[in-house]
Computed example of a mutant assay.
Amino acid sequence: MLKKEIIESGEKMITYPVLTKPVKIGVTAPSAGLHFDQYSLLERAIGKLTQKGYKLEVGNTCWTQFKAKSAPAKVRAAELNLMLHDDSIQIIFPPWGGELLIEILEFVDFNLKKPKWILGYSDTSVLLLAMTLKTGLATAHGTNLVDLRGELSDPTTAKWEEVLHTNQGEEVIQYPSEKYQLFWQHDYETDWIYHLTEPTKWKTISNQPMYIKGRLLGGCIDVIRHIIGTAYGDVQNFQTHFINNEPIIWYFENCELNVTDLRRSLVQMKLAGWFDNCSGILFGRSAANEKMGDYHVMDVYLELAEELNIPIAYDIDCGHMPPQLTFVNGAYAEIRVYHTGGSMVLQKFI
């Protein structure tokens, strides 16, 4: 169905926030805040964005961390709600992820008067996916704020700005990184913060070129799996009411799951109907995916591809082995992975 026909039929559509300069960023910690000895990480990131002309409003939750969270659920939600409904704030940008963002969902006011971007990954992806599924608001799965504190920013990470400045009706293209980070060295930073040493190559399980198209949805599988069966994880309603039953491209990253837990999570998603009308799946690089006996992560990917009869790519730029692309939940996308190693992600804000 064409865009005009959708509007005339009364169907809802994906809403893309529009940025106008000067851009004001609201920094709040809906999951984890920072301990005192970590303050400099956020302070340096704030300084870098301020130098670039952004205005920032930093919430109190960013500076506290106790019992695996920045603050009690209602306190975190209240601060987030204030920023969501502050028309002067155009981007919500948590310092990083955490563990227990899911606690705040029941207290979040999803009825936004003015659309705004929410950007992040890890535990933040729970909020991103829930917001898009419930409201049709596009959200951005990309860099964390503290990872912008470096003197420089690698081209893949830096793309977040161009993506968020893309307007409705426009498109943006991203390519794989040249190199990625194999492991974290928090006590030693480069000018880019990351240690990009390993050559990047996106792969397909068929070892053949892959071309898929559909609407993007995804996040950190460790945490987004927990909204299955809740009012915040209704994929079927999203497909029907916001994307006119277009196919979905899922992207996932695994932070800590071993392969059997990953398999259980994917089967649960399948049984819940999350993979109905799915055109393909992208899996990010992972330092987890620990094998169980002779059961490997490739077995998981191959079984899922056979069950769903869809193409699957893996080792993409997404998640806890940076850098990562900025994937926009709800955006129309065309993904190309070539056997030569070249790949492309085209996102259209339609």
Results as ranks from 00 to 15, higher is better:
L257G: 01
H35R: 13
D294R: 13
N245L: 08
N111T: 09
V58Q: 01
W184V: 05
S206D: 06
G10Q: 02
R149G: 06
W274L: 12
I243G: 01
P17M: 01
T28Q: 07
H165M: 13
S122L: 09
H226I: 12
I224Y: 14
C278V: 03
N245C: 12
P322K: 12
A231S: 15
N309I: 10
K55V: 09
T340S: 12
M269A: 15
N289A: 09
E99Y: 15
K203C: 09
C255G: 10
I46K: 01
K21H: 04
I243E: 05
I91S: 01
L325Q: 10
P247Q: 00
Y121C: 15
N60C: 08
L302D: 13
W63C: 12
L262R: 02
V267W: 14
G284D: 12
T200Q: 11
T143E: 13
G219S: 07
K4M: 05
V126P: 12
F242G: 02
Y295P: 02
P311N: 11
I6F: 00
R336A: 01
P95C: 13
V108R: 03
Q174C: 02
T240H: 12
T156L: 03
H195M: 08
A288W: 03
K134I: 10
Q324P: 03
K67W: 05
D222F: 06
K67Y: 10
I205M: 07
Q236I: 01
T200C: 07
